[in-house]
Amino acid sequence: MTEYKLVVVGAGGVGKSALTIQLIQNHFVDEYDPTIEDSYRKQVVIDGETCLLDILDTAGQEEYSAMRDQYMRTGEGFLCVFAINNTKSFEDIHHYREQIKRVKDSEDVPMVLVGNKCDLPSRTVDTKQAQDLARSYGIPFIETSAKTRQGVDDAFYTLVREIRKHKEKMSKDGKKKKKKSKTKCVIM
């Protein structure tokens, strides 16, 4: 069974824990209790493949930012979460993405942009803004509501699919490099 290491990042209060708990335990946590770091595991079937999701729910508070490099190193894919009623959390996505790329030393890291709290009427981040940002990053965008469960499975499952595509691409690139290195030079 394939294991996928997913990391949920975003500013404090955007609903990272609520999304994760909704996926794992099928219930909505409405009281806000700032996370330092929590880890969850769940076995699911995605596109006919049974897999184990190892999900790291991270601290959004700035005082825990020193811990970010460590979990970013171990993560295979990242859910970059903002709240649709919090423009600052949307603007912060850029910083999370840049930090992930720096730590992973790669421009090509599996990510999904997630606009959470889409059940709320007080939207300050337009869907088109988020779609445009995701398009500019070359990553999928999904709106979710941890409260109603809308888009929750889709967000995590899409990230797994992005990781699969990335692994497939990397193995193809690896095979191309191996083929090239088999060419021999004969000096007579």
Rank of each mutant, 00 (worst) to 15 (best):
D33N: 02
G13F: 11
K88C: 06
V44R: 12
R102E: 12
T127E: 06
R161V: 02
Q43E: 12
S106L: 10
E168S: 04
K178F: 09
K117A: 14
E98W: 01
N85I: 11
F156D: 02
T124D: 09
V125Y: 09
K167A: 05
V29N: 04
G13S: 12
A134M: 10
I142N: 03
L6T: 07
Q150S: 15
Q150D: 10
D92R: 15
G151W: 11
L133A: 05
N116F: 00
Y64F: 08
L23C: 10
G115D: 03
R97F: 15
G10H: 01
D30H: 14
K184C: 11
G115R: 04
V114S: 01
M67P: 10
P34W: 01
T58M: 06
T35Q: 00
S145A: 15
K169V: 05
D154S: 06
L113Y: 06
A59E: 03
D33C: 02
Q25L: 07
R73F: 14
E37A: 01
V109D: 02
Y157R: 12
A146V: 09
V14L: 14
C80E: 01
E63W: 02
S65Q: 09
K184Y: 02
E168F: 05
S145N: 13
M170N: 14
D173F: 15
K104V: 13
K177A: 10
V109N: 06
Y64D: 14
Q70H: 12
A130D: 11
V81L: 11
Q25C: 15
E62I: 05
K104Q: 12
N85Y: 12
S136T: 05
K5W: 01
T144H: 05
T20L: 04
F28I: 01
D173Q: 03
F141P: 01
D119S: 14
V152I: 10
G48D: 07
N116C: 15
D69S: 07
S136H: 13
H166F: 08
N86I: 01
S17L: 01
S106K: 10
L159Y: 01
K16V: 00
Q43R: 12
S181A: 10
T20P: 01
P121G: 11
H95N: 13
F28H: 02
Q61M: 07
G48E: 08
I187C: 13
I55G: 00
H95Y: 07
Q43F: 06
T58K: 00
V14F: 14
T127Y: 06
E76L: 04
D132A: 05
M188K: 11
V114T: 02
F28S: 01
T50P: 13
F141L: 09
A59V: 01
N116A: 14
K88F: 15
T35E: 00
F141S: 04
K167N: 06
Y32K: 00
R149T: 15
C51P: 13
E107S: 09
Q61W: 03
A134N: 10
L6M: 06
R73E: 13
K180L: 03
T74W: 08
V45F: 07
K16D: 00
M111T: 02
V7S: 12
C118A: 12
E162K: 10
Y32W: 10
K101S: 13
G60E: 01
L52S: 13
S106R: 11
D69P: 03
H95V: 03
D47P: 06
Q25E: 01
K5Y: 00
P121Y: 09
Q129D: 15
F141E: 01
T183D: 09
L79V: 08
V103C: 14
V14I: 12
T35F: 00
Y96F: 13
L120C: 12
T127I: 07
L113S: 02
Y71H: 15
Y32E: 01
E143G: 09
G48T: 10
R97H: 14
I24D: 01
A134E: 15
Y64G: 09
I139V: 07
V152Y: 13
L113V: 12
K117G: 13
K172H: 08
T20R: 00
Q129S: 10
K167R: 06
M170Y: 15
Q150G: 09
V44K: 10
H166T: 11
K175Y: 07
D57F: 00
E76H: 05
R149F: 11
